[in-house]
Design a protein around this nucleic acid. Structure first.
Lengths: 341, 341
DNA sequence: AGTAGCCGCTAAACTGATTTAGCAGAGCAT
DNA sequence: ATGCTCTGCTAAATCAGTTTAGCGGCTACT
């Protein structure tokens, strides 16, 4: 791997100058008094030798590595990680940085290990990502340098990037209201644990708040709210079935995420009902299945790439109001229609 | 990030020995003649100072970084990446290594950039991963050091890790044969492009070969094979519909992947048919939707974690037969039953 | 005439590890 | 007494950059 690369000394020699001069020219140092001709010679020599600096040597001196640690609790089990990583990767590349990835798996030992590995490698900063939007406490060891929380907040008020779930709650609700749905909108996916424990989820509470605010503004009440122990298809399915067993059938359903909506679709199909003619469905996340369902599920997209991007921007460029809320755009598909009758 | 850490010199001073001695002790060098007492003192000093070596300094000298580059074509757009990364991460951690991740997005410029970034950081080896199992040519620049292909092969016969798609083809087929399905098994998802162009996919051909071999061994012919332009739900849906328009209805369907199967499920539900009572369905990938479908879809799992793991093992420990084929286990769910009648 | 300042550049120190070469003293044989 | 080996350890070189301090020559000003 990278044997016999030209060194700065080689470049300097070929340019007939000192290492100092070569270093300054190549780093574009301001205020140096090296002649235009010296610049030329150095650039030419570097070009001819295909010179690339040895970053280990550089960071030994400068304590900068152009490397960002991306520490997450769980990457594998959720498809969402990909987007976060990709966004971060893109933004990092634009800034000539690279990503060192580790995973804690929610395990203290692994976390300790991951952090030591990062510190040993002198990363320039840490992105601490959670796969479910939630509050967490970051290990004190990483507070020595810049940190940005991704998809999480912490009690220490560290800079963080979050999806704007509350606004998304408003978005899905007004989408229904605008179509004329009124008092027969039902909600699937209330969940005490997610709503009350910020360390489990921030999304549930925020989404709900958005929904309720939008309804309040319009002076409309929900028909009913179904509790779900988890946000999985089977729970959406069960909730939808009980909903259909009630006397007044809803004209629209808001599901707290796409997996619940998927379950709801299954129950609707089984009951011989058609989306959106009989019931409109709207949801959150823009999981790939949302596009695969028939008809396509309208849902607010978790902007993972943007979030990953934003985290790197804040870390490296500094900046902005600190809970950086990234909008969740509504993906309109065929699951929405005006209420029948 | 990691200010004022103790250096080797600090440890040596505290132990009343030279840097040389301290270095040798901490690295557990054999054949050194340092006294047991010297060992003790160095360990104690390191412990007390919380010494951790500066890896930049170390790699400047040794040209080892305990870092592996994980280069992939596309990480974000596929949920599969997570598993590969997670497996690689685990195996790397066990060997005290860390993963540097980059993405080429199939773009030559990005690829060039990614490779330079890795070489500049003197990674110890490269895992070159493809998100769809396929053949690819690795850029010559990385051939200077150890490389393992993950989910890909190359014309250069580099060591590689692949899922055992052919065996999976046998597995799904014999699962049906064992239940008594015979001449009314249909296949959805033939695709010239995927089958004939190894740079697009190796899976299609291998799966198909497995299916055909298993059928041949049993002396059974397929009822029919449906072509699909893509392996997406809508194509599975369309294929299933045409299949149901034919005179003889199949008793079982083999789908080339789970997304096709998902589409097939949609068409079956629409036609009022029940899985598995009317038709059994089996497939490949173990996409999360497989578990969410009703009834659960039986499918052969792509062992992404294992593959990621294996790649690191081969890279670091060397070894084994070179196309390392990782088995795809059958996840039996409720979509399989004996043919009716 | 003296000196201050600028110009264009360089020598050498420094970062923190590993590694090579070798030194002082003890023990032993000749 | 001399030479040899072994023991336990260290000085110094090395990796490839960045950075500090400063040098010699020239001009300009007092």
């Amino acid at each position: 791997m990278g044997r016999n690369r030209a060194t700065l000394a080689d470049v300097a020699r070929r340019a007939g100058l000192s290492k100092t001069a070569a270093s300054m020219v190549l780093n574009g140092r301001e205020g140096t008094r090296l002649s235009a001709e010296a610049h030329q010679r150095v650039f030419a020599a570097a070009e001819e030798l295909g010179y690339r600096p040895n970053l280990a040597a550089r960071s030994l001196r400068t304590r900068k590595t152009a490397t960002i640690a991306f520490v997450s609790d769980i990457v594998a089990t959720t498809r969402f990680a990909g987007g976060l990583i990709r966004g971060a990767l893109d933004a990092a590349r634009e800034r000539d940085h690279v990503l060192l990835i580790t995973e804690t798996q929610g395990d203290a030992t692994f976390e300790q290990y991951a952090i030591e590995a990062m510190l040993d490698r002198q990363v320039d900063g840490v992105i601490y990502a959670a796969m479910a939007t939630r509050r967490l406490t970051v290990p004190p060891a990483i507070l020595g340098g810049p940190v940005v929380l991704l998809n999480a907040t912490s009690p220490d008020d560290l800079p963080c990037v979050l999806p704007d779930d509350e606004r998304a709650g408003r978005t899905v609700t007004t989408a229904l209201l605008d179509l004329g749905h009124r008092d027969r909108i039902a909600l699937i996916g209330r969940n005490r644990l997610k709503e009350d424990d910020a360390e489990v989820s921030l999304a549930a509470r925020a989404r709900l708040r958005g929904v309720h605010r939008a309804l309040d503004d319009a002076g409309v009440d929900l028909l009913t709210e179904c509790f779900c122990a988890e946000w999985l298809p089977e729970h959406g399915y069960a909730a939808m079935r009980t909903l259909l067993g009630r006397p007044t059938r809803p004209t629209a359903i808001i599901c707290m995420n796409d997996r619940l909506a998927f379950g709801a679709y299954q129950a609707l199909a089984e009951a011989g009902l058609t989306v959106p003619d009989d019931i409109s469905v709207v949801s959150f996340d823009d999981d790939p299945i949302a596009a695969w369902l028939r008809p396509g599920l309208s849902t607010t997209a978790l902007p993972h790439e943007q979030m990953g991007r934003r985290a790197v921007e804040i870390l490296l460029d500094g900046g902005g109001a600190t809970p950086s809320l990234v909008p969740m755009p509504l993906r309109r598909r065929r699951s929405l229609a005006a209420p029948a009758g």
